[in-house]
Every structure is written in C-alpha cells, then in structure tokens.
C-alpha cells in the first residue's frame, strides 16, 4: 500500500471524463490495399534490386544496338571469333581482346588500333553486343506477349467460366482440358508445318496454350469470391453483373493476377529460348538469346565468350523476374496482412 501512496494521491480519485468513443479512434493514416502493398514491396530489397536490373536491361535492349556502329547482321570474316575488348576495363587484364593463351586476337587479325567489340564477335564476324541486345528485345517481347495473353485471354476466360457457371463453365472447362492435353512442343511443331519457324509461330503457340494456367487460377478465385457476402450484399442492393465484375470481383483478384503473370513471364522467356536452342525458334540472321547460346555452345571450349554473355543476360532476366514476382507475392498476399 505504501508504495502506491507515493504516486497516487486523493485528488486522482475524481471521476475522469473519458469519451468512450475515443477508443474507437483509428490511429495512423488510412491506407488502401495498393498503397499498403507498395510500402511492403519497397521494404523488400531483393525485389527492388530485381526491378532495377529489369529496368537497366530494358534500357540496354532498347538503346544497346545503337551504341556502336555495327549492325546485328553485318558479317565480315576478317574479324570473326574475336573475344571481348572494352576500353578502360582492358587495362585490368580482363576483356582486353586476348585469348586464353594471352595472344591479342585483335592484333593478330590485323585490326586497327581503337577497334573495340564489347562482347566480341561470332563466327561470322557479327558484333555480339548488338546481337545480345537484339536478342534481349526478343525475350522482352515474349515477356510482354505472355503477360498480355495471360491478362486478356486467361483472365477473361477464367472469369467468364466462373461467374456464369453452370453450362457455360462446363463447356469452357472441357475445352481447357483438351488444350492442356496437347503438349506445347507439339503445338509448335504443328505451327511450323503451317508457318515458317520464327517469331510468328512462337507467338501463335503461346497464344494457344499460354493462358490456361491463369484462367484456372482466376476461375478458382472468382468461384470463391462470388459466394462471398459482400458480393451477395451488392446483389441484394440491385447491382448489375457488370458492376459486380468490375467493382467487386476484378479488384479482388488483381493481386493474384499480377503475381501469376510475373511467374509466367520467365517461363515464357525460357520457352522461347529453349525452342530457339533446339532450332525450332528464330532463324538466322535474327538473334535471340536462345540462338546465341546455341551458337556459343558449339564453340564453347574455344571461344567461351560467345556463350557467356547471352547466358548471363538470360539468367539475369529470369532471376530478376522471379525475384520481383516473389516480392510482389509477399506484398500482395492477403495472408501476410494482420
């Protein structure tokens, strides 16, 4: 008792005026889901690094081919198979145009002083720097394409299937089952029978099968959401189907859509590279990272530079997309919210 009396005096036993509604006050700023997700994403260092890598790669893919005077298809056998040589860095003993014996290849080929191929040249004397960025463009095009297909066809297909349900759902899901049964590779080979191998046949192949995963995920989400009480509440208020879809369903599946898109992108990029590598993809002289790696792989032991640079770039792209996708999932996944 004595301890208490030290700090508690009689005066304190007066009724306090406490507004009970004060306990209902909410501290802190009101954050929307997206603002909240953005804060979370910003805290994720690896995701931010991934974003920066993707940004840099995109800029290089756009401007890289114009940064020197060589074109991606210009052949000159006198400068074939040159290793990389970059100003300034050459003084460090790497990328100085020498082969593993230490011979300066540029001198041996009799090229004039001040000639630099930043990533070296290939067997036909084409500048690899230009070709690598040209190939990155293809990869990024595939990335955009895959994302677009996912977003447009996948989301619409899954959404319609789930929202209207019943017969519609039944028919649409049977079609999906048939499409899933056909391996991608078979579709591509069939495409090549009709069209020439190249970017168009890859595009068509992706369009036919690339959206199925997304459509299934969206269908599952919408099926779950459309029975939720807030959707029922909106229906009892008299909302039209359009309003329910745009105001209640789409905003709530957006997170899942974004996450899933980010994970399909690297898969699509790899799919293209793989096709090009086995010769079903792009045809020369067009370069893609897949074809570059394939060419480099044939001379891997003699001229390792031909394979190293495109391999590093494609690895960077894949890692960056995966890391960003991971970060987005952590940021958008509602289970992480307390």
């Amino acid at each position: 008792m004595s301890k208490r009396e030290n700090y508690v005096n009689d005066e304190l036993f007066q009724p306090a005026q406490i507004d009970s509604h004060k306990s209902e006050k909410i501290a802190g700023p009101g954050l929307s889901f997206w603002q909240d997700a953005w804060i979370r994403l910003r805290k994720n260092k690896s995701a931010i690094v991934g974003c920066i890598i993707l940004l840099v790669l995109t800029i290089l893919a756009v401007f890289g081919p114009y940064m020197n005077e060589y074109s991606f298809s210009e052949q000159k056998l006198t400068r074939a198979n040159l290793p990389a040589k970059v100003p300034v860095i050459e003084k460090l003993g790497i990328m100085d145009g020498t082969d593993d014996m230490g011979n300066d290849m540029y001198e041996m080929k009799g090229l004039e002083e001040g000639t630099y191929f930043w990533f070296g040249t290939d067997g036909l004397g084409r500048d690899l720097w230009t070709r690598v960025w040209q190939g990155t463009r293809i990869s990024l095009y595939i990335a955009l394409l895959a994302a677009a297909i996912d977003m447009v066809i996948g989301v619409a297909y899954g959404g319609i299937s789930a929202y209207y349900g019943g017969r519609v759902d039944n028919v649409l899901q049977r079609i999906v089952e048939i499409l899933v049964g056909i391996p991608n590779l078979v579709v591509v080979i069939l495409m090549i029978l009709v069209l020439d191998p190249g970017i168009i046949s890859i595009t068509v192949a992706l369009t036919i099968t690339g959206w199925i995963g997304m459509s299934r995920i969206v269908r599952g989400q919408i099926l779950k959401l459309k029975g939720q009480e807030f959707v029922l509440a909106s229906r009892t208020l008299g909302s039209s189907d359009n309003k329910i879809i745009t105001k209640h369903l789409i905003p709530n599946v957006m997170g899942v859509i974004i996450i899933n898109t980010m994970f399909t992108i690297p898969a699509a990029i790899f799919f293209e590279a793989f096709l090009s590598f086995i010769g079903l993809g792009l045809q020369p002289p067009i370069a893609s990272l897949g074809t570059l790696i394939e060419e480099g792989y044939r001379n891997m032991q003699i001229f390792p530079h031909m394979m190293i640079y495109p391999s590093i770039i494609i690895s960077l792209i894949m890692i960056a997309f995966n890391v960003v996708a991971d970060g987005l999932r952590d940021a958008l996944d509602p289970k992480m919210r307390e």
Binding site: S32, F230, S234, N252
Partner: peptide, 8 residues
Amino acid sequence: ASLNPRMT
C-alpha cells in the same frame, strides 16, 4: 467477408 476489402 461482407465488406469489399478494396473499397473505402
């Protein structure tokens, strides 16, 4: 579940 989490 009865309030849309994405709306104010």
